[in-house]
Design a protein around this nucleic acid. Structure first.
Lengths: 166, 166
DNA sequence: GTCATTTGCTTCGAGTTCGAAGCAGTAATT
DNA sequence: AATTACTGCTTCGAACTCGAAGCAAATGAC
């Protein structure tokens, strides 16, 4: 068991700060673009995009949640909103009465198609316009490594818990 | 003027997906750690950390907001919470009656010191444990470039300035 | 079979976030 | 000096998020 250091090298600090900054700025801009282009929040867009990628445009709630880290209750809320707008349908799974299967409707597909190019353009402009092809490759490789590691890491907290004053 | 493409190369897509995934997973874990270690939200921690970095542990609200993209009203809300907990003080600026100067209190400094090592350890474990020194350098360089570009980009790009017509 | 446990999802309440509107102080224009 | 525009912050209402508690279906233990 290697001990975890409680300080970071300058390079690590720089990477961490840049990462958080890029992350929140990109998120912010993308959110605005999606809102104005299709009246979607980023979460809603991610849900539609995930459904668009799925084999038949349908997924169980649980599978839909995985990878979009949000809580189950939040997912229920957003699924309700999307269903009210007619972008998505929900029905109990034939296999398992407990499961709800969410399916992309034609309207949902249309909205997704309408919003997608602008989303990609925004991301390109914000994130990739400043980077060379080589840098993009490196970024994909390095972050891919980090993502693999994160996915493998159990979700339990790394530090022993401390008591707080009641 | 180069036109922005509406599709991404596979490498760009990979980098984008990895980026969003790492971003949300790290955020999620860090949030938990801070909550259990010092009963702080990530935003609150960032605010305290920013104040800790500032020359006299004091900043105007506006300067505090820059770089932590959150809205002004959200900042007001969090500053109120931090003030109620005694981690921070607020007073009108002597220079400009409009400005509020936020200053880190001793208690705030103590909480920050108590939470910081665990925060760093968590980030190290999540993000940097999987990466070689060289990769960290590359990551810092590449994301630094992207951050520079983002900072230079005006926050309102496409919309012309608006006037109110009473 | 019956009971306990687990799983999948929803409901509920509390807390957090944002944008729009509002207020007061400052700067610019005349 | 007076009017106008702008800046810095707060208040307000609506929307979103989460965790805990709850419910029903499925699984496992006996």
């Amino acid at each position: 068991m290697t001990e975890t250091p409680t300080s970071l090298t300058p390079a690590q600090l720089g990477a961490y700060f840049a990462f958080t900054e890029v992350s929140s700025l990109v998120r912010h801009s993308v959110e605005k673009q999606l809102r104005s282009a299709g009246d979607l929040s980023y979460v809603q867009f991610q849900l539609l995009a995930r459904l668009g990628d799925a084999p038949d445009g349908r997924l169980r709630m649980t599978d839909l949640a995985d990878g979009v880290v949000y809580s189950r209750s939040g997912l229920t809320y957003q699924a309700q909103l999307l269903e009210q707008r007619g972008l998505v349908t929900r029905m109990p799974s034939p296999d398992d009465e407990r499961s709800t299967v969410v399916a992309l409707s034609d309207a949902g597909r249309a909205v997704l198609a309408a919003v997608f190019p602008g989303h990609i353009a925004t991301v390109h402009q914000l994130l990739f316009a400043a980077l060379s092809d080589h840098d993009v490759d490196e970024l994909a490789r390095i972050l891919g490594q980090a993502a693999d590691r994160l996915r493998a890491t159990p979700p339990r907290s790394a530090t022993p818990r401390q008591r707080k004053n009641p």
